[in-house]
């Protein structure tokens, strides 16, 4: 469904992606892991068209994403941002129903609110939250609202950018379970980027490790522990010693 072929991206003299090849099948949950600053978010933004790759191709159902009609392309995606990226000036329900209040998916206001409340319920938040402003919510609640917004228009593909960053382990576990449940029940294709190994084990069907601007290893999550790749081993076990250079 999503295929990346030789994707390169740099910022000035710094080359972040150096030829990424990756494919994600329809309905699959792919988790991309890698250390901080290895270009995971850049990869995700390149797929969405928020950043333009310097070289390489990104295909969605065989079509180059640069040739796709932008609105129709984006309508297929939902995204949960690392910090939630909720709009401060809008109440929670309008954040969730943002896509349903404008553009090609526009619905009547009352119906959009009804859908927003239902999506909030799906992520474990009651209707009393609907009229609050994002600043009135805890970090965990903001993540849930972000998740509700990502699934509000029932997209085919959902991206999760560091879904558990900044959450306590219990809340992280709750969010991981929610993501897994929602992706399974919607039959959506999911791509998650994280360096949280509990997220990887909870969410992934397949795992890809990004290192030095390339996919170092990819395969089913069940094979991750026995990969035999020293880079992957060091990363998943969180060892300071190993081939991946660390700053001390």
């Amino acid at each position: 469904m999503i295929e990346l072929i030789g994707v390169h991206k740099g910022f000035g003299a710094k080359q972040v992606l150096r030829g990424v090849d990756l494919s994600i099948a329809r309905g699959e949950s792919m988790v991309v892991i890698g250390g901080s600053g290895t270009g995971k978010s850049v990869l995700l933004k390149c797929i969405l068209g928020l950043l333009e790759p310097d070289a390489g191709r990104i295909l969605l159902d065989g079509q180059d994403v640069r040739e796709a009609e932008r609105d129709a392309f984006l309508a297929r995606f939902g995204m949960l941002f690392q910090g939630g990226a909720l709009f401060d000036s809008l109440p929670v329900w309008q954040n969730v129903a943002f896509r349903l209040l404008r553009g090609r998916l526009k619905r009547p206001r009352a119906e959009a609110r009804e859908i927003a409340v239902e999506k909030l319920r799906r992520v474990g938040l009651g209707p009393e939250v609907a009229d609050l402003l994002p600043a009135e919510l805890s970090g965990g609640m903001q993540k849930r609202v972000g998740l509700a917004r990502a699934i509000a228009a029932e997209p085919e593909i959902i991206f999760f950018d560091e879904p558990t960053t900044g959450l306590d382990p219990i809340m992280a576990g709750v969010i991981n379970e929610l993501i897994r449940e929602i992706v399974t029940e919607m039959g959506a294709t999911a791509m998650t980027i994280t360096h949280d190994m509990s997220s990887v084990r909870a969410i992934a069907d397949k795992v890809a490790m990004l290192h030095a601007g390339k996919i170092r290893w990819s395969g089913p999550v069940a094979q991750m522990d026995a990969s035999g790749d020293p880079y992957l081993d060091q990363f998943i076990h969180g060892r300071a010693e190993g081939p991946i250079e660390t700053l001390r």
Binding site: L74, G78, Q82, A85, L86, D88, F98, R99
Partner: peptide
């Protein structure tokens, strides 16, 4: 600028706006 820094602008784009 705050919307830019907190990725709200990126969120707008992904929401087809």
């Amino acid at each position: 600028a705050t919307m830019r820094v907190t990725e709200q602008i990126d969120a707008l784009v992904t929401l087809s706006t």
